[in-house]
Every structure is written in C-alpha cells, then in structure tokens.
Design a protein around this nucleic acid. Structure first.
Length: 259
DNA sequence: GTTCTAGAAC
DNA sequence: GTTCTAGAAC
C-alpha cells in the first residue's frame, strides 16, 4: 500500500477497530486517532475525520486543509471544530501520560502542516519537545517549528473563519510556493532561537532544553506540594484557634521562580 | 522514506 | 584517510 494514501484507507474504514491496535489510538463516529508511525516528539498523534461522517463532503473534499477550505464554509468549520474537540480529549490523555512517565506536563501543539506529505486531512497533536529518534532532517524539524509559519495551529486556522472574506480567500489557498521555503530555513531552537549548523547539534540542544524544562517544572511541582502540605498542617494545628494570617511565600521561592 | 553521493568535519 | 552529514534523486 502506498505510504501516501495510508491515512485515507484508515479514514475510509467502516470498522476502525480493524486497524492494528499498534496504530489505532481511539475512534469516534466522526474521527480516527492514530499514533504517528514516525513520531517527531515524545508524543505524536494524528486525528483524521472519517470519510463518511460529513455528508455531502466526500473523501476528496477531505483530502487536505486546502480542499476542505474550498468547501462550504460552515461545513468546513464543522469538521475543524469537531477535530478541535477530539484534540482537547487527546491532549488530556497525553498530559496524564506525561505525568505518569515523566513526572510533569509540558505544552502540546495542535495543528496542520500547510503543505502535507500524505493524503487525507490529518491534525497533528504533538508534544512541544521535538525530541525523537524519528526527527532526522531539517524538513522534519522546520515542519513543526511553531514560529516559522509552516506549521499552522488549529486555533489560527479557526480564526480565519472570523476574518474578512477576502482574507479567508487569500489565506485558504495555502500556496506551496509560499510555505515550502520555510522548510529550508536555517535550524533554530524553538525555545531560545539559537541557530545550529546541523541536526545532531540541534537535537543535542533540544534534549538539553527539555532536561532544563523537566527540572524547572518538577521543582515547581515540588514547591507547590510543600506549600500545600504546610497549609494543611497549618490549618489542622490552628483549627481551633482564631483566624490565621495567610502564609507568606519564603524568600527562596521568589528567587527560584524567576530562574 | 530510503539510497546515493559530494563535501565538510575531524 | 575516514567518518559524518545534508541534500538530491528516486
């Protein structure tokens, strides 16, 4: 089967449960969520609108964002808002898993590639780390870089529907010539903008950025936990006494939070 | 995505 | 001289 149309065959399944469990994450009447076969971050899912869920839209209307945005505006918006709801649920699952596996939560991006590499509309739900063995070449990295322009956040796309009709017209063309050059831009860290000469150097740096984030977030959680314990002890020990003054933040805490 | 090759890095 | 990497070709 062609790699380019694999998503379409999933989206056309009458019974999504027949999709291998190593691929399928979950499905609803309207969508199918799969685990990306080549994850570009620690968590990377794709949400596909099911081919028969949006009559009279056809599988060719659902080929990509461009083809969808050419359809009746209300119908297109319905597909996207449904995907948005699904994404919200998936993000919650990812966050739970982040806490279970890594002990803290970090950002999750939800959006489309402006120029997709596979047939059938697919919404990326991807953790904001871009650390993965499958992240190999510049094109991979730049296609998810949140500040570059190639990656279109779903919220941005939804905001196009509230813009002027002429803006919607223009932006919904998603011209390849406009977006493809982003993929060739120099490698720069999405956290700190530092630039890198090659992928191995960038990947090493992204891992360091993630380690820093992990430390920062975990100590934040630790301070929160301590504070809550203290507050509880305080409440209990003073339960029979008169009103207690609010707890003051220790000096040390102020310092750490600014770092 | 994988394979091949030129050129950079070491 | 050998290894590594980016980019082109498929």
């Amino acid at each position: 089967m062609s790699a380019l149309t694999i998503l379409r065959t999933y989206a056309q399944k009458a019974d999504p449960a027949s999709i291998p469990s190593s691929v399928l994450f979950e499905h609803t009447a309207k969508s199918i969520t799969i685990i990306d076969a080549y994850p570009k971050s620690r968590f990377h899912f794709l949400i596909l609108p099911r081919a028969s869920a949006y009559p009279p839209l056809t599988v060719s209307n659902l080929a990509n964002l461009r083809s969808l945005l050419k359809c009746d505006k209300d119908r297109a918006k319905e597909v996207l808002t449904d995907l948005s709801e699904d994404a919200k649920r998936i993000r919650t699952c990812i966050e739970e898993e982040m806490v279970k596996r890594f002990g803290f939560k970090w950002a999750i991006w939800t959006g489309f590639h402006s120029v997709p590499s596979m047939e059938h509309l697919h919404l990326h739900v991807i953790s904001a780390d871009l650390c993965s063995p499958s992240m190999k070449v510049k094109k991979h990295y730049n296609s998810f870089h949140p500040k570059l322009g190639f990656f279109l956040s779903l919220d941005d796309v939804l905001s196009w529907f509230d813009a002027t009709p002429s803006y919607f017209q223009t932006v919904s063309q998603l011209k390849k010539t406009e977006y493809e050059p982003y993929l060739k831009e120099d490698l720069s860290c999405f956290h700190c903008s530092e630039s890198f000469k090659n992928m191995p150097k960038l990947k090493e740096h992204l891992q360091e950025e993630w380690n820093k984030m992990s430390k920062r977030e975990k100590s934040k959680l630790e301070r929160k936990r301590k504070r809550e314990t203290e507050e509880n002890e305080n409440t209990n020990s003073n339960a029979e006494n008169d009103p207690v003054p609010p707890l003051k933040k220790p000096e040390q805490e102020e310092d750490l939070s600014t770092k």
